[in-house]
Design a protein around this nucleic acid. Structure first.
Length: 668
DNA sequence: GCAATGAGCGTC
DNA sequence: ACGCTCATTGCT
């Protein structure tokens, strides 16, 4: 081989000299091993002196192989006592990782007991070389100060926007009134930050919401000021827009959960809309949640934060209770004037069908009447039915309160072996003599879901009326005004100009008998999302017992009261967010080994392990899961203890992995 | 007494 | 996934 071929790395290695200034690069390497979750130092060769900038992507030789990495910073000298290797390559001089993003990612990794590189993978989209040439660099114009009069109907609403305009780190939880044009309100809040020369990030659950908020922002601030960062754009366009944000060409970002890391340089406002939607939970390790990431980011950068939605989560309640956030709500009088009339019909109500048509639809006559009145008035009727695949666990035969374990209050389930008694999904203790905590009944039942059929029958009962469906693969963004039945699954409710004349919420039982910690909160959130689309003179009928807390909260339109109840109940039972919880799963042997080496913080305990239901056909091995619980104030200690226990396993090259998930949404 | 072999561990 | 150290083994 020609020895004069200097383009080959091997030929160059002998003659490499370190850069004259800041010759040491601290690099986060892309290696999925917890015990290697720290920077490694490399020498910057002279030829990369200008391109190896802080935050750029590099390739380095690590343990004999070439791996990707992020250059975290350039420094004068290394603490490393051994010999340093040279950077192999600068992938691109684009500084994709700002010091702010690196700090945020580190904080998020620490909070979830995860690795920096995993968070960076979520925070920095994959590179697309052509997009680096195309992305704009000229800064966007500063929009005018918006008209924020519409916020005047909410107590502390105007004060919050004033604070945002003045660049103060105000933090609030906001609930718009029914039929409120919330995308416009969020756009106004973003414009307050942008008009002060700062940025804003608005994170919504799905693309439909993203499109609405983006449109509202464009209407207020113009095309050039705002960008939508959606995951479905394709890698090139996604990276191009992301770079436009990083380069300061756009300051207002609207998007789904990945936008929580959007590289807005100086965000004045961070917003999460509908924080109870499970789409805000990132499904990739370390499973960060939008609300928590934005709380962290608000802390680190001094940005204002707005947690918004029609309903309030227990987590948002905690932010308010602890005094960390203020609440922005309309007074009761305004709520009464804007909310539709809500009627609850429980299974044992005497409202059963007298009308023959209503009986054919297996619906109480009041439900039937409400729908007919709305259709006659020329307005559409929203019919909310449960999603398929809802698997309710065991509930009391009489009052349908979910059956809970006496030992740890986890949900009971029926083992597939019919000779075995019910057992707890969390701690595994079996329950031979169930007795309902609410009514004392000793019988158990598995709830049945059949509301989709009810909706079909409803359509038949209103012969001649247009029936539209929205849900699953086909979600309608909006429907035209005029009489129609709009049957949809939760979260897929189409918008209609002027609002719906009525909403029928048929999935009450299915929702409330789910064996999920968040079942009631989730039910109320979905009901409110649907009912908020109904005109003030319209009607809402919910098929659930009126004595239940979430039903009362809907009737009174009082998400604050319900969240207070919910948080108190969780504190009572020792559930999140009153405590910090983690789920750990793996093979029985790996899990046992993991728990053995886990050094629990004080006052922490372990529930389980219990066998895990088989997740699918591709999962032939037996898996178990344990829950680890600690008081809130030991959250950091719990996260680092879990991290250390994972690091012990990766350091021993144990091929049998365990998965740690802090604050999982699903505890069942 | 010392090469040959392999498990264990760090990885810049 | 390399490549280093160090302990054990087997042979002179």
């Amino acid at each position: 081989m020609a020895s004069g071929n200097t383009t080959r790395r091997g030929a160059r290695r002998g003659v490499q000299v370190p850069a004259g200034v800041l010759p040491v690069a601290r690099v986060c390497v892309d290696v999925p091993l917890a015990h290697l979750d720290r920077p490694f130092d490399y020498l910057v060769p002279e030829r990369f002196a200008d391109t190896a900038v802080s935050g750029c992507r590099v390739r380095v030789r690590f343990a004999g192989q070439l791996v990707d990495g992020f250059l975290l910073e350039r420094v004068d000298e290394s603490d490393h006592r051994g010999k340093l290797a040279f950077l192999d390559r600068v992938v691109s001089a684009e500084p994709v990782l700002s010091p702010d993003t690196a700090r945020l990612a580190r904080a998020v990794a620490d909070r979830y007991g995860g690795m920096l590189i995993d968070v960076l993978r979520l925070a920095v989209p994959p590179r697309h070389a052509q997009a680096e040439q195309k992305a704009p660099v000229e800064p966007a114009p500063t929009p005018a100060v918006p008209d924020t009069a519409a916020w005047g109907r909410y107590r502390h609403g105007s004060a919050f926007l004033d604070a945002v305009r003045q660049g103060k780190p105000a933090r609030a939880v906001w609930h718009p009134v029914p039929m409120a044009d919330w995308p416009a309100r969020l756009a106004e809040a973003a414009a307050c930050a942008a008009s002060a020369g700062r940025g804003a990030i608005l994170v919504v659950p799905d693309h439909r919401d993203s499109a609405r908020v983006h449109a509202a922002c464009v209407a207020l601030m113009g095309e050039d000021t705002v960008v939508s960062l959606a995951a479905d754009l394709g890698p090139a366009e996604r990276y191009r827009r992301w770079l436009a944000v990083r380069r300061g060409a756009v300051r207002v970002v609207v998007g789904t959960r990945a936008a929580m890391f959007a590289p807005v340089a100086d965000p004045g406002l961070l917003v999460v809309w509908d924080d109870g939607d499970d789409l805000h939970a990132e499904p990739r390790s370390p499973y960060p949640h939008v609300r928590d990431v934005l709380v962290q980011r608000s802390h680190l950068t001094g940005s204002a934060l707005l947690v918004a939605g029609f309903a309030r989560t227990a987590e948002a309640q905690l932010l308010v209770d602890s005094g960390w956030a203020h609440q922005i709500v309309a007074d009761r009088d305004t709520v009464r004037k804007t909310a539709p009339r809500v009627t609850a019909i429980g299974e044992h109500d005497s409202q059963l069908a007298r009308d023959p048509a209503a009986r054919a639809a297996r619906l109480p006559s009041m439900t039937f009447d409400a729908a007919r009145a709305a259709l006659t008035a020329g307005t559409p009727v929203l019919v909310q039915v449960p999603r398929r695949g809802y698997v309710p666990a065991l509930a009391c035969q009489r009052c349908r309160t979910p059956a809970r374990c006496r030992h740890c209050a986890g949900p009971l389930f029926l083992p597939s072996d019919p000779t075995k008694p019910p057992a707890c999904r969390w701690c595994g203790v079996s329950e031979a003599a169930f007795r309902c905590a609410a009514c004392g009944d000793t019988r158990l039942r598995a709830s049945v879901v059949g509301a989709r059929r009810t909706a079909e029958e409803l359509g038949r009962a209103f012969a001649g009326v247009t029936v539209r469906t929205s849900g699953g693969a086909e979600v309608l963004a909006d429907v035209p005004p005029g009489p129609a039945l709009v049957v949809c699954t939760p979260g897929a409710e189409p918008i209609v100009a002027g609002g719906y004349g009525a909403a029928l919420l048929l999935d009450g039982w299915a929702m409330l008998s789910r064996a999920d910690l968040r079942a009631t909160e989730e039910a109320l959130r979905r009901w409110m999302a649907a009912a908020a689309l109904v005109r003030a003179d319209g009607r809402v009928v919910v098929m659930a017992e009126s004595t239940l807390a979430p039903v009362q909260a809907l009737v009174r339109w009082d998400p604050v009261w319900h969240a207070g109840q919910e948080l108190a109940a969780r504190a009572e039972l020792g559930f999140p967010p009153a405590v910090r919880m983690a789920s750990v799963d793996g093979s029985p042997a790996a899990l046992a080994d993991f728990l053995l080496s886990l050094r629990l913080p004080r006052d922490a305990d372990v529930l389980g392990p219990v066998p895990l239901e088989h997740t699918g056909p591709g999962e032939p091995q037996e898996r178990e899961r344990a829950l680890v619980r600690a008081p809130r104030e030991r959250g950091r200690a719990l996260a680092s203890a879990l991290f250390e226990a994972v690091a012990v396993r990766t350091a021993h090259k144990d091929p049998d992995p365990v998965r740690v998930h802090l604050d999982p949404l699903e505890l069942v």
